[in-house]
Design a protein around this nucleic acid. Structure first.
Lengths: 129, 129
DNA sequence: TATTATTTTAGACTTAGTCTAAATATAGGT
DNA sequence: ACCTATATTTAGACTAAGTCTAAAATAATA
């Protein structure tokens, strides 16, 4: 990880919002949240910062097939599960079996570089309704 | 699967394009392809048809995090791998181990309904370049 | 201080897709 | 065949999410 990350005030504020949120916010939600904290950055700045932070490895971009990306301040290897009903996103730490990835390498001839698992289901809260 | 699927000429033409393509086309690619075959449908019709066919279970919509959905005429259970370099998408039939899904159920408290694995890598062709 | 590089800004623009109201086509009943 | 009801298609306006650009502001370096 590069130690020369240039954390401008804008990038820091955005990073903080992501880390303090516990629900994997979208860019729109981040902007909303910044506004509540008294910040109002240009759209370009927000998207640019999100790319920068992602590139720097400080956050992860989650593409769950919703039309907008979500951002995650937890950069440990993990996957996600999303509730079909309320939309909340939770972390999943049980990792996929490594053999499976090797199988795929053999089956497809691809050199597998990364995998992302998107789970959908019903969260505990929504189960009781 | 409902046997009363209303396959209008437009829907049939779109379905055929998807089935005859071997590279999981996007809506834009489908429209392009239709044009080459002499069809020119309204955008609304194409998107509406894609939803209808997906809903009817005749095709699958793939959201690989690219900004536009792809469509797949192969409705057998399988996953996908995409080449980071050329973008082509191939099928993966080696299935994930079922125990893994049960683990997640336990770990998260969610009732898991579906899972999608998006693999990224380098395809055989791009490896030789 | 002067120069250069980096970042932010506002706002125009793009892409992918949705929505709407009118026009067409299809199906069922008489 | 004719009337009515329902389903589908069409054109084009509209939306959401994000990118791009050129100018202004900051920061870093000589």
């Amino acid at each position: 990880m590069d130690s020369k990350v240039n954390l401008t005030p804008q990038r820091k504020a955005i990073y903080d919002v992501i880390c303090e949120s516990n629900n994997h916010p979208t860019a729109a939600e981040i902007i909303e949240n910044l506004k509540e904290n008294g910040f109002r950055f240009a759209y370009g700045t927000v998207y640019n910062s999100l790319h920068y932070l992602t590139e720097a490895g400080l956050i992860h971009e989650l593409k769950l097939g919703e039309g907008s990306s979500r951002y995650d301040g937890n950069i440990d290897e993990h996957q996600h599960i999303q509730c079909e009903i309320c939309g909340r996103v939770d972390e999943v730490f049980t990792e996929i079996n490594g053999e499976w990835l090797e199988e795929i390498d053999k089956e497809t001839g691809y050199t597998v570089k990364s995998h992302q698992v998107i789970l959908k289901g019903v969260c505990p809260t929504c189960q009781n309704q």
